[in-house]
Write a protein that binds this DNA or RNA. Structure first.
Lengths: 347, 347
DNA sequence: CTGCCGCCGTGAATCGTTTCAAAGGCATTC
DNA sequence: GAATGCCTTTGAAACGATTCACGGCGGCAG
């Protein structure tokens, strides 16, 4: 009932506390008979290690702190899941914090993690990282930037080439005959959004006769997507784009809902639609959504890998920058408009 | 750079360690001038409290362990969010674990929480709870059961009256003229599912001329919902139900997608559809989904409340069982079939 | 028989914070 | 001037696991 300590176990087993600790941590140093006896004592007393004492001695905890921008975005949930699985293999625990794109919340989690002497931090920074990260550096807490490239060579990072992803998406739209393309995304301050747009621009620039319109949103949510969809529908059919590239799937699903609910612009016949992230909901949408897949679980997995390696290094001089390539996933929402054999578009 | 301790701060400020601790924890006991000096020292040395040492002394941590069945279900995310917010007010941290309905994973989280000497545990048990909970009891770890009623008076619990919820949903379908109702949900082993079905049965039983068909699923996911939707569509129109009550919104959205994608059974004209949980996606669906709302954030909030109260009580004898009532949310997916003034159904 | 080596086991010191009994300082009161 | 009381500060003890230099013991070689 009351909490048992190694001392109680030692007394009950007729050995010293040092031996109990050895049974727990280096059983090879203890004779089988003694191990037996100690474990019996642990069992009958219901002894459970006190993690705080262990950490105090060790100097750092066996937890990893992770901070993401939005827990309700399945992409981040998937990244976290990947990180958690890999962490579990290393007997590390993942502490998940949600910054909600708010710098203050981010800071308060970082403070907490500092007090906890976490093993390391996985961070998708809210905005400009420099100031806050400076501090982590000084404390020598291993830190890996997630889903964010950086030219800063004092950190490791795991990211996806968003410029390439944007290019893939728009190239696909152009290749399937679309010409008037709208990019939907925002706020422009998010690096991810800016990069995807840059990729889109590149694809449009290299194909004569295509044009790109940019529709800025306030956030990457379903609701914002619906607003954009309604705005598009309000235009005359001729003024509408014939394809929409949304900066993430939540936006794309919002656009899709607006277009198909009000029903006057069919997807993909009149407007093709492609999103980004390839979240599970994408394939389950009313019109299955084309998207650009990021290897979300792998990102989390890799981030923990880098973190563990960096934490083990004598000095943190093994900064690595892993950049994954995104992958195009084609589904019904970007099927090309049907072309009859005589070359005219069918209805 | 190297970690600073209270001792360093004390030396630098020319006071004793006790005083530093008092500045940190009971500033009212310390003269303003001293506070000033100590805080300056903390600032210049970059001192950060070591949480492990603090916990060791305190005997228990300031974390709450929470285990949910499925982190990708927005309902549980919302509950967790509510719990986290309330915990933050109490300066407690929420550790979120995902059992994925797997008893082993649940156990391993419980073990972890024990070692951490968590303040308390919030648990939505996987199956039969008795054995594992016995142990928490013996250790005296305050525990609150979440989204699960229990007759066990050794625990507090926070739940929603699922029988009432099922009744609300089907009563509404019946009241709007539906007669052949299908209940979609499973596995039947989940208490939540069984209760909602019981409520549905009650509503049907009290209205002559109505009938209830039960379609069992393997899980409460979008994919399972689509399967069911396809099965319904495969029937001749006369053999189809005229309303579907799904045990949660994910299922309902799957059904909706199947029905509206294949397009031969319109919602709500031919088949009304209602879900359960009222997740955010429900209102944003192609046909906005009627649902039964559970006060998810409030559930989390209340669970933490009970936990805190129980943890503060000298002996854990203040077990409470809070049961919330669900609320019907009517949207387009259950609009009654239009009736013309002359009494015939319009097309 | 002595000396050396390995194997097991020992127990005091340590991590950094909080707590608490006690002491110091100062002013007010008789 | 001494006694009293309040306010502030002190410093050692405690929390519980881990570590490490050391000691006991048995066996084996010389």
């Amino acid at each position: 009932m009351a909490s048992m300590s190694v001392r109680d176990v030692a007394r009950h087993a007729g050995v010293s506390v040092g031996t109990v600790s050895n049974v727990l941590n280096r059983p090879d140093k203890v004779s089988p008979a003694t191990i037996e006896r100690v474990q019996a004592a642990i069992e009958t007393l219901g002894f459970v290690r006190n993690d705080a004492a262990r950490q105090l001695r060790a100097g750092r905890s066996r937890s990893i702190g992770m901070i993401v921008l939005d827990v309700s975005n399945p992409f981040f949930t998937d990244v976290a899941r990947g990180a958690e699985d890999r962490a579990a293999e290393e007997r590390l625990t993942l502490l998940l914090g949600n910054s909600d794109e708010d710098a203050d919340r981010e800071k308060s989690y970082l403070d907490l993690f500092e007090e906890q002497r976490v093993h390391g931090v996985l961070l998708t920074p809210v905005g400009d990282e420099s100031a806050r990260l400076e501090r982590l550096l000084r404390r020598g807490i291993p830190t890996v930037l997630v889903d964010r490239q950086t030219d800063d060579d004092r950190f490791s990072s795991v990211s996806v080439d968003d410029v390439a992803g944007g290019y893939l998406a728009v190239r696909h739209l152009v290749d399937t005959g679309r010409r008037r393309i709208a990019f939907v995304g925002g706020p422009g301050g998010l690096k991810q959004v800016a990069d995807r747009l840059a990729g889109a621009r590149k694809a449009v620039a290299e194909t004569p006769g295509t044009e790109l319109e940019v529709v800025e949103t306030e956030a990457l949510t379903v609701l914002q997507g619906r607003h954009v969809g309604e705005v598009i529908l309000a235009r005359s059919p001729e003024a509408r784009p014939d394809a929409v590239f949304a900066a993430n799937d939540l936006l794309a699903m919002g656009v899709l809902q607006a277009l198909s609910m009000l029903g006057s612009a069919r997807v993909p016949e009149e407007i093709a639609l492609i999103g980004y992230d390839d979240i599970d909901f994408a394939s389950a949408a009313v019109v299955p959504l084309s998207s650009v897949r990021q290897p979300s679980a792998l990102i989390g997995h890799t981030a923990v890998d880098l973190l563990v390696r960096e934490a083990a290094a004598p000095d943190g001089f093994t900064h690595e920058h892993v950049v994954f390539q995104p992958e195009l996933v084609v589904r019904a929402s970007t099927a090309p408009p049907l072309i009859a054999v005589d070359g005219t578009a069918s209805s």
